[in-house]
Every structure is written in structure tokens, then in C-alpha cells.
Design a protein around this nucleic acid. Structure first.
Length: 194
DNA sequence: GTGAAGATTAACT
DNA sequence: GTTAATCTTCACA
């Protein structure tokens, strides 16, 4: 069962809790790959210094964030890694969720081939890694998650006690925003990033 | 047109 | 723990 548009039309912190445990699906020419979402971070612009949309910045890169939820926001970081984000909330609300880690479920052989490694636990335990393993590239910027190529499959909601909140990672430049607990993980899952 | 910095990763010491 | 790899984007002129 594919998640509908309504799922994404809510504030980032709520959607982050709901999206944990759901399954990201990508239909590619090499086969179908699926991964369970076990770690996300919320970026709530324009008041979040760590967000690319901080201070209401609406450039060609961030523009997709201002549209309605349920679309992919993709960008290249450090010249070599792809980061995959999901736009949430309504028009005029630049809020996104950064996918930080997945638990590989299907198409594991394809992931191994793309990543060039064998250890399953290392396939998707980081933003750049999961993007490569899932076959997501810059060309997927703006892809509609309510379409057929990439979407999220529904799964039962997790118990509150299974969700762990913590500080976000690698945003030291964001001053006071570094202490906000906007990273959400599934407690005890061994596929989350280091 | 130019320059600085980054929501990371892997391979070091 | 430290560092190189590598290129897009933004801010300014």
C-alpha cells in the first residue's frame, strides 16, 4: 500500500515520527530495491539555521521545498555524495526530512553491486551511501513520491517507546540549532548510521 | 566571473 | 581522531 499525498502534508516533526519503519521503494532498470527507513533528520526552514531554506532562501536548489509535500529534494554534497530528502508540509512551508539510514529489504544484490561492497550493514547506514545503494541521483530531484518509480510503502506505526530522538549530526556551523533534537531513529536498530 | 564552504565517506595515523 | 577527495551552489563584484 503506497502512502498517499496526505501523509506528507503535515509538519516535519510529526511526519518524521510516522515515517520511521516505512519502506522506501525504487523501481530501476536493474530491478526493484526496497529499504526500511530507520533514521531521519528534520530540517524545518526558514527558522532552522541548518536548513538550506534558512531565512526564506528560495533559490533554484531549494525551490522544491516550497511546493507541496511528497516530492524528492536531492542535492550533491562535498562534490561526491548524494543526499536524499523528502519534502513535507504544504505550499510555502520549506520543511524536509533527510533520509540518513535504511535497512535493506529487497534488491540487496543490486545494492551490493552499486556500492561495490559485501557487508549488508554498510550498504545504507549514511545519507550518501543509501542514495547510491538505492540508485538515486540528481536526476530524481523533484520526483513525485505519489508516482510509480519511487514511493513509500505503508507499514504499521511504531510504538512511542521504539522511537529515539537525538541531536542532528555534522551541522556544527548551525550555531544554536545544533542542540535541537531533530534526529529520529528506531531504538536498537543496527542499521542506523555511526 | 571568482571564491569559499559544505546535511559525507573512506582511508589513513 | 584527522584528512583528502571533489564540484555544486551561493554571495559578491
Amino acid at each position: 500500500m503506497k502512502l498517499r499525498r496526505e501523509f506528507y502534508q503535515d509538519n516535519a516533526l510529526k511526519v518524521a515520527r510516522k515515517i520511521l519503519g516505512k519502506t522506501l521503494v525504487h523501481h530501476t532498470s536493474e530491478g526493484i530495491v526496497k529499504g526500511r527507513i530507520v533514521e531521519v533528520e528534520a530540517y524545518v526552514g526558514p527558522n532552522d539555521k541548518a536548513s538550506h531554506a534558512y531565512n526564506g532562501l528560495d533559490s533554484s536548489r531549494t525551490h522544491i521545498q516550497y511546493g507541496q509535500g511528497g516530492y524528492l529534494y536531492i542535492y550533491l554534497i562535498y562534490g561526491m555524495h548524494i543526499c536524499t530528502n523528502i519534502v513535507v508540509n504544504g505550499v510555502g512551508k520549506p520543511e524536509v526530512l533527510l533520509l540518513r539510514a535504511l535497512e535493506p529489504l529487497e534488491g540487496v544484490e543490486v545494492m551490493k553491486k552499486r556500492r561495490g561492497i559485501e557487508r549488508i550493514k554498510d550498504l545504507c547506514n549514511g545519507p550518501g551511501k543509501l542514495s547510491k545503494a538505492m540508485g538515486i541521483t540528481k536526476t530524481h530531484y523533484g520526483t513525485d513520491l505519489c508516482g510509480e518509480e519511487i514511493y513509500i510503502e505503508d507499514a504499521p506505526d511504531l510504538e512511542e517507546t521504539e522511537i529515539e530522538e537525538s541531536k542532528r549530526i555534522n551541522i556544527d556551523y548551525a550555531e544554536e540549532a545544533v542542540d535541537i533534537m531533530w534526529r529520529f531513529t528506531i531504538k536498537g536498530n543496527s542499521y542506523i548510521s555511526k
